[in-house]
C-alpha cells in the first residue's frame, strides 16, 4: 500500500507518519518512509535523531549535482539514499534547503 499524509502545518502529519510507518513495520511490513517535505523532519519523528536527520543526503540535490544521465530506478534510490531507522523502517529524504550562494 502507498499512503500520503497531508494537512495544515503543525497538524501532526510528520508525527502521524512516523508512528504509522513504525507500527506497520512492527507488523511485519517492509516500509519505506519518504519525506517529501522541503523542510524534512520525518527522521526526528521516526526516532533517527536530529543530527542524522540533518546529515541524510537528499535525492534531489545530489542527483542534480551529479547531472545523472539516466533516471535511477526506485530500488536504486532507496538503497542509495535510504537509512535504516527504528523497527527497520527505511527512511529517504527528497529535498532540503541548502545554504545558498552568498548574495
Amino acid at each position: 500500500m502507498k499512503i500520503a499524509v497531508v494537512g495544515k502545518g503543525g497538524s501532526g502529519k510528520t508525527t502521524t507518519s512516523g508512528v504509522l510507518a513504525r507500527t506497520l513495520a512492527r507488523q511485519g511490513h517492509s516500509v519505506v518512509a519518504l519525506d517529501c517535505d522541503t523542510n524534512p523532519n520525518l527522521g526526528i519523528s521516526l526516532g533517527v535523531g536530529d543530527d542524522e536527520t540533518e546529515r541524510l543526503a537528499t535525492m534531489r540535490q545530489t542527483l542534480d549535482e551529479e547531472g545523472i544521465g539516466h533516471a535511477p530506478s526506485w530500488d536504486e534510490l532507496i538503497e542509495r539514499f535510504g537509512t535504516d531507522g527504528p523497527d527497520g523502517v527505511r527512511l529517504a529524504v527528497v529535498s532540503r534547503i541548502q545554504n545558498p550562494e552568498p548574495g
Binding site: 523542510n39 523532519n41 526526528i44 519523528s45 536530529d50 534547503i97 545554504n99 545558498p100 552568498p102
Partner: peptide, 20 residues
C-alpha cells in the same frame, strides 16, 4: 520542539547569505 528547532536552524542558515 525538536522539529521546530531543526526548522529554525535551517532558516537561520540563510542569515549569512540571503538575509545577511
Amino acid at each position: 520542539t525538536a522539529k521546530s528547532f531543526a526548522t529554525a536552524r535551517r532558516l537561520s542558515s540563510l542569515r549569512d547569505s540571503k538575509w545577511a
